[in-house]
Design a protein around this nucleic acid. Structure first.
Lengths: 338, 338
DNA sequence: CTGAAAGCGCTAACAC
DNA sequence: GTGTTAGCGCTTTCAG
């Protein structure tokens, strides 16, 4: 690996001082044309590229945002990253993604710090409420915006879909189709979003005069294994549900797979509704009814909030909520009389 | 945004010199127990966290790898990122992802440099052959491995699936099913992989005594719009193809959509075969026959090559090729007599 | 216009 | 054991 060319080398080659070289490179005024030309020539010849690390260590802005992601590709996360990226680029900021299962992992702390120091601001996507790094960011009043976080009050700006309303809408859609035994499959508790969705679901049921039934609540943890197990448990009930609401689309797909394997038809025997409206949702057979997050608005809002903090130097800790949208496809239908 | 605590502040608070504080923090020997304890206490109290940027600027290793990605989520890219991430973490390296449409974009050069300087090594996923940054990496003999690059000889290590063999396998599968008029829909020329797949396809046809027909080659550019147009053009031919081989799965899905819209049945009327075996491929109706890349092996190999270069300081520029695997699903079937 | 010097935060080498 | 010094590559005072 060839060693990088430094400005000093360029200066030497051009026969000027380090400082003059610096001015020439940055197209600063106060440089004679002849000096500028000689430096430029030397820089080109030596393939000089400024050391951005050094600049950054002086505190110069990097025009760079960092995104922390728990698992990229996890459905809606990918979409958010895309939209954030678009908006950031539009505003002439670059983007670096740091993906980690758990940011508070000891070995990962260094990288977190590194990225913090490197970037002008940070976006945390679906952060885990147990992540110790959140407290650090909160304490430092960092330039940081949380996206998709609903676990607790926190001294950092948050942008999030109205999970509670969305849960209510999902349940109301099923109630309107005549369903009375509606199951809910929870995701993990990481971001608190699943719990909020569950609260909305429970509220809608209560409003319809339906008593909560703990047997109809399954624990899916957002992963296929436990989701399949939860589905089978629901099917094994004396009075199984006629509809299943899943805290995200991935689990809904798993549920549909399990049902198909058991010869249960969707939506004829059981209706299934998901959450997020990932790309796959429109490709499955039958198409998945789900709640779409306005991920574009959420992403744009998060970027703007962050840039406002960066530009103004003022810390804010607002909370912006965006309305979801029901997308009806073929996986939900009228409740069959039993 | 609170200012970061520096080691100097910790040292002052603990009543020792900067250097002793440094030793204590790094658990260096040659520190008295009492000093160590006082420094530790001060550091905790002030919430000191070392500035990784500063360490890095001295040349200390970061145990950090960088991935450059053209568009994350683009099918196989996501899978590669996942596997690379797993392997890197297993070897106690962290990972930073930099996503850019074109790395040679003027405004992006700074970020590229930054990441280069930051990371111990770099992985370029499906780099664009026109990317000027490749020449820089090549010239500097950088710690950098290219994944999924088949455009040209290059003075950097490359790990890639055997695209030519894969193209041949796809065509041979269709030939074995009795197809004679087999179309190919090209992707973009960015990485050179599509061209290699096409060469394999052409070779298989030639071996079967079939003369190449330019009308059967469509330009899909890996995007839905042009792929749909190419498909319609194929359908409009006097003698349309009975099978279509697409340079990736995404385009194959688009082709299937278009065919469905036109009332053309898959595989009864036309067989379709893709490339990559993305997750969606097994969810479509009918399931998509495709060629799977051994993305896990490719990822692991890339990481190992990179770490070898980092550890040894020795530059290498080997080229490792991995065999593809034919995955037969329902989108390909016997050619219908016409 | 140009050059010398200070400093960003940290650690290795060198004294005491 | 501990403190002092130099230096990573760059830009910003501050003098000439």
């Amino acid at each position: 690996m060839r060693k990088a060319v430094t400005l000093q080398q360029v200066a030497d080659a051009a026969g000027v001082s380090l400082n003059t070289a610096s001015r020439a490179i940055r197209a600063d005024r106060y440089v004679s044309e002849s000096a500028r030309a000689r430096v430029q020539e030397a820089a080109d010849r030596l393939h000089y590229r400024p050391n951005v690390l050094a600049r950054r260590m002086r505190g110069d802005p990097a025009r760079l945002l960092g995104i922390f992601v728990n698992a990229i590709g996890w459905g809606v996360v990918h979409e958010l990253v895309d939209h954030i990226s678009d908006e950031a680029r539009r505003l002439d900021f670059d983007l670096v993604v740091f993906s980690a299962e758990n940011f508070h992992d000891r070995r990962r702390v260094g990288t977190s710090d590194l990225l913090c120091g490197l970037c002008d601001g940070l976006l945390m996507l679906l952060p885990n409420q147990d992540d110790g790094f959140l407290e650090v960011l909160e304490r430092d009043r960092s330039n940081c915006v949380l996206v998709g976080f609903a676990a607790r009050e926190i001294g950092l700006p948050v942008v999030v879909v109205d999970n509670r309303a969305a849960g209510r809408m999902a349940a109301e859609h099923l109630l309107a189709l005549g369903h009375r035994r509606i199951a809910f499959i929870q995701g993990s508790r990481a971001t608190g979003q699943s719990s909020e969705r569950e609260r909305g679901y429970a509220a809608a049921l209560a409003a319809a005069g339906i008593a909560p039934d703990p047997a109809l609540i399954g624990a899916g943890h957002f992963d296929p294994g436990s989701t399949a197990a939860a589905t089978l448990a629901l099917l094994a009930l004396a009075r199984p549900p006629t509809a299943i609401f899943c805290a995200n689309d991935g689990m809904a797909l798993t549920v549909m797979e399990v049902l198909r394997g058991r010869g249960v038809r969707v939506p004829d025997d059981v209706s299934v509704i998901g959450f997020d409206d990932i790309a796959l949702a429109s490709y499955t057979q039958p198409g998945l009814t789900t709640l779409r997050q306005p991920s574009r608005e959420i992403a744009v809002s998060a970027v703007h909030t962050l840039l406002r903090m960066i530009d103004s130097g003022q810390f804010e800790s607002t909370r912006r909520t965006y309305p979801p949208e029901l997308v009806v496809r073929q996986s939900t239908g009228p409740a069959r009389a039993r």
